[in-house]
């Protein structure tokens, strides 16, 4: 561990994907996110080659720190070149509500949508409270006045169906019970 030859391409690609998610969430711009991922990877590989850090999972904080610096640079560059008119134009530009949806294929989104529509209304409500209000199962249980174990089970079962649909399992979404 520690030299560039140790850097498996699979690991690098996983890191690149993670960096793109992080940057896309911060910047809302796929192109800028890709640039941030590339620049961060370059700096990380350079640091590993120079022996300043060792490659491995414990690098998470280090890589994240570099990525935040690169993202901050992009923010600063944007601020220098952005006036009020540009703010208004950008606000009016057609863009999806959630920039991260660009990471999802249309087909995957449709499959999950179909599976979701087949869930019980109560299960959808649990997912809604979880994914939009950010409530934990315990908080949802309190709100819906149900045992937390039941909420956990319902959420986990509903998510499993959606997960199978997301990965292309044709039978996903159908409730056997």
């Amino acid at each position: 561990m520690g030299s560039t030859s140790d850097l498996e391409s699979e690991e690098l690609e996983r890191l690149r994907a993670g960096l793109q998610m992080m940057a896309l969430r911060a910047l809302g711009d796929p192109e800028a996110a890709e640039e941030v991922a590339q620049e961060t990877l370059t700096r990380v590989v350079r640091a590993v080659r120079a022996g300043r850090v060792k490659w491995g999972e414990c690098l998470g904080g280090f890589v994240r720190g570099i990525a935040r610096h690169v993202i901050a640079d992009v923010f600063r560059a944007r601020k220098r070149s952005t006036g009020l008119e540009a703010v208004a134009e950008r606000a009016n530009a057609a863009q999806p509500d959630d920039p991260l949806t660009i990471l999802i294929l249309a087909e995957e989104q449709q499959r999950v949508g179909r599976a979701l529509s087949q869930l019980a209304e109560g299960d959808r409500e649990i997912l809604h409270l979880s994914f939009f209000a950010g409530l934990t199962p315990a908080e949802i249980a309190e709100r819906l006045d149900e045992p937390v174990s039941r909420i956990r089970k319902r959420k986990s079962r509903a998510l499993e169906r959606l997960r199978r649909a997301f990965h292309g399992d044709a039978g996903a979404g159908h409730d056997p019970g």
């Binding site: 959630d98 999802i104 949508g113 998510l159």
Partner: peptide, 8 residues
């Protein structure tokens, strides 16, 4: 992300 999109 897909679930949030489908819920919305």
């Amino acid at each position: 992300i897909a679930v949030r999109g489908a819920l919305a």
